[in-house]
Structure formats: C-alpha cells, structure tokens
C-alpha cells in the first residue's frame, strides 16, 4: 500500500466505496469480510438451525412442547430464581461496590480482585463447591439443618448458585460509575442542608441507577441461561427444582429433538429480549453520564 503514502497527490484511485473517516487505512475489506464470514459460520448459521428445525413442527406440536406442565414449572423456577437472585445482587452488589469505592480497609485490593472469581471459576467447580457448602452436612447447610431448613437440593439452592454467578455483573457495572461520580454534587447537597441519607437517595442513587439496573439485567440474562453451577445444587426434581436448560438436556437424552429445539427457541427469544433491554439500559446510562459510559468489565 505504498500509494497510500501520498494520498493528497493521488485522490482519484481511492474513490472506491471506502469509509470516509479513516479512508487511508488498509484492510477494511479483508477484516470486515473475515469478521462477517466467521460470525456467520460460528454464530449465525448454527443459531438459525434452531429456527429451521422448529419450522418443521406444526404450531400445535410446538405449543404442546413449550407449554407442557413440566416445562412451565421449569420456566417459573428459572425466572423466579433468576429475578430473586438479580434483586439480591442489586442490593448487596451496590453495597459491595460502595464499600470498595468509598471506604478504606485492609486487604482491599485482594477483596476487589476476588469479586471477579465467578467470571473465572468454571461453573461446574462453583456448582460442586456450593452444594458441598449448603448440603445438610456442609459448613453452612448444617447451621440451618436443625431448624428443618434445606438449602441445597431445593429451589433456595438454585437462588444461591445464581447469586454467586451474578454478583460481579452488578459490582463491576456500578463501581466505575461510583468512582467517577462528582463529589461536588454531594457537597452542594450537603451545603444546602441535605442530610447524608437524603444526599444518598436524591443525588447518589439517581446517578448510579442506570448502571445498577444494567448490572442487574446482565446478571438476570446470565442467570436465565445458567446451567453448570445450578444443576449440582438444585436437586433437579421435575416440577420442583428443574431448570429450563436442564430440561433441554433431558429431552435431548430422550432423543426428543423437536421438544428440545422448541424449548431452546423460547430461551433464545428470551435472550434476544434481554439483549434489547440491556442495550436500552446502556444507551440510557450513556446518555445519563454524557460520555461513552461504563461497559461492564468482565466476561459472562
């Protein structure tokens, strides 16, 4: 691309459909072509197989597969537990982010690094560790067992696992917003006579609310599809503690491909809805901050 060295002298040859902003850089066609091809081969074409496979069903077959009582019970558990876990994470994640940003305490850097553990720890490991902890003979389970409270192998266990995997989403989304929050606003509120609680409710909370909701939505989206950390602690009783992803696997093992695909299509549609919600929240957050906003820092 040595001709690119003197773009002003040779304007004519570069009048192709090149993007205007950084017109002189090479490699748009190659990188874009590769990106689209790879995206298509790895993600879009495989995902479309769900749609095509479901199109082979009649509407009655599809409806029967996705609305059977056992399937509906699994939706109820998956969504109920995911919502509850996202709410718990909203409350405690906000407190954790607040304490990490505002208060000094010994070992803070280690604690801060530990928050990312659920991103890095394989879900199967989290699953067996949590079920060992919360089983009736485990360290935590044995505290509750004398009162007849069972945590592992019940829907409560599902919520525990989903709290574990969702926590970093809330903390890591709220943390940068709190770090960049303008202390001057709090100062102004205080000088105008607001109490600390009033300042928190009227100044700080509205600032972090978009980020908090984004974090909770990310945690919710992850929780709905979660499989590995849940199945060990859930007990997996049909109608009681069986999550939807597990039901897909069960159908697959029974060679009920149509049933598995229909339920998977429902889950994929929910993923798209969650993606739209999260994009909307991030747009709101970006507008709220007047900058590019905080992208959640970690993987899912």
């Amino acid at each position: 691309m040595s001709s690119a060295a003197l773009p002003l002298d040779h304007p004519a040859p570069r009048r192709r459909a090149r993007p205007r902003r950084f017109g002189v850089l090479p490699g748009f066609g190659l990188s874009m072509g590769y990106t689209l091809m790879y995206l298509g081969l790895v993600v879009l074409i495989p995902l479309s197989s769900l749609l095509f496979k479901t199109l082979g069903l009649t509407w009655e077959q599809f409806w029967a597969a996705v609305s059977a009582p056992r399937v509906v019970a699994s939706y109820r558990l998956t969504f109920g537990a995911s919502l509850l876990a996202a709410t718990i994470n909203g409350v405690f994640g906000l407190i954790v982010a607040w304490v990490l940003v505002r208060y000094p305490f010994p070992g803070k850097r280690i604690v801060d690094a530990l928050v990312d553990l659920p991103f890095a720890l394989p879900t199967a490991v989290a699953g067996i560790a949590l079920s060992a902890l919360y089983a009736p003979n485990g360290w935590i389970g044995s505290i509750f067992a004398p009162w007849g409270i069972k945590i592992a192998f019940t829907p409560i266990g599902v919520v525990i696992a989903l709290v574990f995997i969702g926590l970093p989403f809330v903390v890591r989304t709220v943390q940068p917003v709190l770090e960049e929050a303008e202390r001057e606003l709090e100062e102004a509120a205080a000088s105008l006579g607001a109490s600390r609680l009033q300042t928190f409710l009227r100044v700080i909370l509205p600032t972090v609310l978009p980020a908090l909701l984004t974090g909770m939505a990310l945690a919710l989206a992850r929780a709905i599809g979660e499989y590995g950390s849940v199945i060990f602690i859930a007990g997996n009783l049909p109608m009681v503690s069986e999550i939807t992803p597990l039901l897909i696997i069960t159908k697959l093992e029974q060679f009920d491909y149509a049933g598995a695909t229909a339920i998977a299509l429902v889950m994929l549609s929910i993923s798209f809805v969650m993606l739209a919600v999260i994009n909307g929240l991030q747009w709101w957050q970006a507008r709220h901050l007047g900058a590019d906003g905080a992208r959640p820092g970690g993987p899912r």
Partner: peptide, 15 residues
C-alpha cells in the same frame, strides 16, 4: 454471551 450454554451445544447437535 447472551445465549444459554446448553442452547449453544444444542445447535451443533442439530447441525
């Protein structure tokens, strides 16, 4: 990131 891992596995079984 938004697709359930189980669905991710299923699509390759379907293909």
């Amino acid at each position: 990131f938004s697709v359930s891992p189980v669905v991710a596995g299923l699509i390759y079984v379907l293909i």
